[in-house]
């Protein structure tokens, strides 16, 4: 199962664009399994350093997770002022408090205006979220989190040690 479309300029990414390995996560801010993966993926980024580019795409299961759409929208709003990753991290570090009031507070903390926050909560980023969701479906995402390593779906363990082992092997093959 391969990633469609490939990682491009519209994606949220951390790390060097020419890193030998790109890890893409399709995630939902309210999904508990994504919450469990969050510190592991942070550790993976630390351990891989410049050899890894990390990309996040939205796959909010809003029928199951009532706050997932607004949380994702707030991260997209933050992206508009260059604060996507600050918001991404704040959301995963406060998974138990994703109601609109809490989201508004996080928005204020990263520097969004009340106008930007209200727009985010009233659907201004729906098209971006839908684009990510549909790309996930086309790429074979069947739940969250879903990981792709250099475009190929990864179904193995998501603990940092297992991931780093796989990513290092991929980096060696690319080099």
């Amino acid at each position: 199962m391969s990633l469609t479309p490939a990682v491009g300029p519209h994606d949220h990414s951390e790390g060097l664009p020419d890193a030998p390995v790109t890890l893409v996560e399709y995630g939902d801010y309210e999904c508990p399994y994504c919450g469990e993966a969050y510190p592991e993926l942070k550790a993976v980024q630390r351990l891989m350093g410049d050899r890894l580019r990390f990309v996040f795409r939205n796959f909010p299961l809003t029928e199951a997770h009532p706050h997932a759409a607004h949380a994702a929208a707030m991260a997209e709003a933050a992206a508009g002022i260059g604060k996507f990753w600050e918001m991404h991290d704040m959301l995963y570090e406060h998974q138990g408090a994703l109601d609109d009031r809490s989201l508004t507070r996080y928005g204020t903390i990263v520097g969004l205006t009340m106008g930007q926050i209200e727009q985010a909560l009233s659907g201004a980023h729906d098209e971006v979220l839908r684009r990510d969701f549909m790309s996930g479906l086309r790429s074979g995402v069947n739940g969250t989190p879903a990981l792709f390593i250099n475009g190929q779906r990864y179904d193995g363990s998501r603990d940092a040690d297992s991931l780093v082992e796989v990513l290092r092997a991929v980096a060696r093959d690319v080099a």
């Binding site: 939902d28 999904c31 508990p32 399994y33 994504c34 299961l61 809003t62 029928e63 199951a64 969701f133 549909m134 479906l137 069947n142 739940g143 969250t144």
Partner: peptide, 16 residues
Amino acid sequence: PVCGDQMVLYNQVLPE
């Protein structure tokens, strides 16, 4: 289990 559940995913994809 919830997040990887096939029916929950299809419920989300229902509009498509």
